[in-house]
Computed example of a mutant assay.
Amino acid sequence: MKNPCMRAAALAATTLICANVCAQSNVTIYGVVDEAAAYASNQNGNSNTYMRSGSLSASKIGFLGTEDLGGDLQALFLLESGFEADTGAQSVAGSLFNRQAYVGLQSRAWGSVTAGRQYTPYYLLVGSLASSNILTGATGAHPGDFDGLDTTVRVNNSLTYSSPVWRGLQASTQYGFGEAKDGNGAGSSFSAAVKYSASPAEFALGYLKLKNGQNSNAAGWSDTASGNFGVSAINQGYVSAESIQFVAASARYTFGKFMVGANASNVQFQAGSASAFRDTAVFNTAGLVASYQAAPALFLSAGYSDTRAAHANDISDRARYRQLSFEQNYALSKRTALYAIEARQLAHGQTLGASGNVVNAVASIGDSQNGTPSSNGGQTAVMLGLKHAF
């Protein structure tokens, strides 16, 4: 385009178009880079000192966008990818936006409807008050995060409705389409939760049901299921379940610089005709958590949980897991923090191994040791790290 007037006109038109688009829509890029030096006293029989990504907050990058559609209506989307800061690899190989990927509509008066890969209302409302959020899932989640109160449960092909907050009360429900052709809802999921906040107290109650996929068999959880979950030494004997039911409640109370909270969960791994176990396996957990803002830059927290399994599947001495966790967080700025986290877990009794045989229970702290449990009933973990949010 050689004509100066034409070039100027084109530039002016492009500027006007861009200004119009930018005025109506907004995209935010955000993320976290979190890296720690970690020590575990026993990982499959040996102690280990290593680097670990995402010990306080998961390392991730996300894109959050909204567009004003007029009146009280907005379009929104979220794309979030987790990565390993120590290697640069994706947190889930072959899945770019492995944490969340959804699109939807929202209104201040009517709430929001979103569709895609999402967290469950069970986690978003109940988990937000649980130990995994106040401490960290790496060492503060209940053993193996078997009750899904941290971020290990995500649901594909899901449709979620969340109400607006009305006088401190919010409700949300979600359905995950199993997309099986048999019409029986194989691989589907359902979650519902309510949360009530009236400072200084908060309370939440939630439900989640995950169904195995259409190709479910004794080999484990089908990749056709809409919902996945964390697998560890705590629940590896029950991954061939026909379905899993989660019920949990959490509450906390804040007074001044102190916060105290309590949580409880009931998880049932329900057997089917192709499962590697016979009886429904039930795990009950009770937990306590507390925090203290010791100084403007110093945050301290601690948590304790006690998990007990019910008698079933020829187990005479049912498994029990007790875990104590601590966190010290020093903010260098609003975006950068140094932290230390520590935890100790004791396990005893019996559970089912991966092949469905009765084995001695072993310790597996939080959800940081899901693939590296202890070889016995004790495990200690210590992590020292640096977190930067942008």
Rank of each mutant, 00 (worst) to 15 (best):
S25Q: 11
L208A: 08
V260C: 06
F283Y: 11
A85E: 02
W166C: 12
I234A: 09
P4V: 08
L298Y: 12
M51N: 05
Y330H: 06
V239N: 08
A12R: 14
E67G: 13
S112G: 01
M6A: 14
G206W: 10
G70W: 10
A19I: 11
A40T: 15
N48S: 15
N284Y: 05
T15N: 14
S53N: 02
A233D: 07
F190G: 09
S191R: 06
P143R: 00
S189E: 00
A312D: 13
G168M: 05
I315T: 08
V382T: 11
T151G: 07
S53P: 03
A180W: 00
H311M: 07
S158R: 10
G356L: 13
N357C: 10
L69R: 13
L129S: 01
V289W: 10
T372Q: 14
A40L: 13
A381F: 11
N20G: 11
Q379G: 08
S53E: 04
S57H: 10
S158G: 09
Y123P: 06
N313D: 13
L324C: 09
H388K: 06
T307V: 14
V359L: 12
A89H: 07
A93K: 07
G378Y: 13
A297I: 11
H142G: 09
Y207N: 10
A276K: 01
T152S: 13
T307N: 02
L298E: 04
A276G: 09
T28R: 02
A249F: 03
Q90P: 06
G111Y: 01
L288A: 08
N184I: 04
A192P: 03
Y123G: 04
K387H: 04
I244E: 00
C18L: 15
T336I: 00
L125Y: 03
G356D: 15
A233P: 07
S132E: 08
Y292P: 06
S189P: 08
S91W: 01
G140Y: 05
A218T: 06
Q323F: 08
Y304T: 06
Y207C: 08
S55A: 13
A10S: 14
N48L: 14
A219P: 09
G183E: 01
S216D: 07
A198E: 14
T336S: 01
C22E: 14
A93L: 04
D34Q: 03
C18E: 15
